[in-house]
Structure formats: structure tokens, C-alpha cells
Amino acid sequence: MKAARFIQMATVISLATLGGAATASAQSKTFTISWWGYNGEKMNANIIEPFKKICDCNIVFETGNNADRLNKLKLRDGKGVDVIYLSDSFSQQGIEQGMFKEIDQSKIPNLKEIYELGRAPQGKYGPAYTIGRVGLVYDSAKVNPPITSWNDLWRPDLKSAVSLPGITTTAGPMAVIQAGKHAGVDPYADTEKTFKAVEALKSNVVKNYNTGSELVNLISTGEVRVAMAQDFTLASMQAAVKTMTWAKLKEGDIATVNTINISKGSENVDLAYKFIDFILSKDVQQKEAEQGVDAPINTKVQLTPDQAKIWTYGAEQVGSLSLISYSKMNAAKTEWIDQWNEVFGK
């Protein structure tokens, strides 16, 4: 093993000297942000350029989806990036894996301006910077009577008409939680009855989706008429099928948030606090919302009804939502994935 290790190092080092010359060495003060990577132009104009003036630093991005970036952060033992944007269930996993620093709320004055729900959604860790909903959408031209309850998913007239989020997506486990409620049990305690209810859904499900674009394709080609979805996909679905409607559910929708955390190995902690405070400020949140990037979580943001219609917006709407227990959900997730596979895999 030692010899192998030696050859390995020798090869790597010789190759590194050959190829490594091309990449510049790190600058003295570089702030690294891990995030998804879409909407780069707006992110740059609204957040990065103004923040550069505040911090007098270089800004570098690591991009990719939640799982990719969290996996890499873990492999590097929490080093390499300063702040990381994640959706709620992934940031909970990062917390459980010890990847983030605890947050000192006094260093983020703008926290006071955001909705209570978003200040510390996952214990002592990072705040939410945007809020969304998971609910049901349906084609009002083809689904009659309209969908008014989570229980409608089980309706016999919706045979081969439904798409659920796959168990491995952000919203997937929420389908399991709703199935538990439908069966009248606690989904975390009574897995058996919960998955009986999931199984009862099977004949209504055409295919479960794994990405937003897959869902939009299923809707636009008419394969699916009813779906459990996140609100940001609605506009695209309506562009494809005008009659797609966000259902008004009597039980209410489920909240989802995206969080921002300071990584355990951050070497620019003060800057990280400044950055988080900056993206929660009214000015940034206002711009991001007006340009259709993210729904605002700052209570002082003012939107016209037209700007607001694509977002979860306003105290009343936000107040009607509830967060799920991420720690409970993540603890159950492995078991749920197996059960879900068994139900839909047969």
C-alpha cells in the first residue's frame, strides 16, 4: 500500500506541476459562495457587484445542485466555501453532518425585518432568504370538480392522471406526510398505514417527476393533469397549458424555504455574516422579487399585485403556511425511500 501511495503521489505531483501552472493561485481575500448557478446575470447585478463594494474582495462561485455541492463540502470537511445556499431538507442534512457554523443572530441585524418563520428555521443555524409553497396544481379544463383538498389526490376519477414529486426530491417526502394525514396517522410513527395510503395512490400516478423541467414536460404533453408541485414551476406550466390552476386547499399548503449557512471551514466568517445580512436587506430582496428571481422574505418589501402573483407574498399568505419538521423527516427518509421504491417499483 505504501508503494502504491507513493506512486500515486508522485504521478499526481508531476502532473500537477505540468497542468497546475495554468490555474492562478488563490488571491489574498477571496470570498467563495456555493449556490445553484441559475440566473447568474441578475445575481451578479443585484448582489455580487454591490457586495464587492462593501467587502473589497474577490468573489468566486461553486455551482451545482444541492446534493452535488453538499457532497463536495462534506468531502472537503467543510472547507473550500464560505457560505452555501441550500434548500431546506439539504441544509438540515448539512447540519446533521456538522458542516455549518452556528449563527450568532446579533451579527445579522436584518433578521428582525424578515418573517419570524425564516429567522431560524432549523435551530441555531442559517436563516431562510426566500420562501415558497408546495401544493397541488390541476388542469381546470379537464378536472371536474376542482381540487380543494389533499384528499382529492385519491379520487377515483383521477386514474392515470397524477404526478407526484419523486421521493428523492425536496417535495417528495411531503407526499408521504400527506398520505399519513390522509390515513389519519402520524407518518413518522405508523409507516405501515402511511404507505398503505401511498399504495392506494399508485393507480392514479402516471409517473413521478424528479426535476421541474420533467414535470413541465409531463404537463405540456398532456400525460399528466394533476400534480403536487412547488410554486415556482406554476408560471411555466401555465405557459404550456393555460388552464393549469393552483388549487386552494382547505388544509393549506406546505412551506418550503431556501437557507443560507456559513460553512464550518469558512475563513471569512465576518464577511459571511455581512453577506447574509446583505441578501436579507430590503433593497436586495425588493430587487430580486421585482425581477422574478426569488420570493421575498423581508417584511418591508412592497410588491404590486401583478408582481406578487407568482410568489408566496404577504403576511397573510405566509402566516397560513407551516414548516415541516426537517429533522424528523430526514431521520425517516432512508426508510421512506425504501418503502416508496417498493410501492412504485413493483
Binding site: A67, T168, K333, N341
Partner: peptide, 19 residues
């Protein structure tokens, strides 16, 4: 879809979803 799950998808779930 899930009805036709294959080894690659199964592996992906383990690695990238449950870590």
C-alpha cells in the same frame, strides 16, 4: 420511472440523496 428502476438510479439515490 420508478417502475423500471435500475441499479444506476438506485446507486444515485443512495449517494446523492441519503448521502
Amino acid at each position: 420511472g420508478e417502475k423500471q428502476m435500475m441499479m444506476g438510479t438506485f446507486l444515485y439515490q443512495r449517494a446523492m440523496v441519503t448521502f
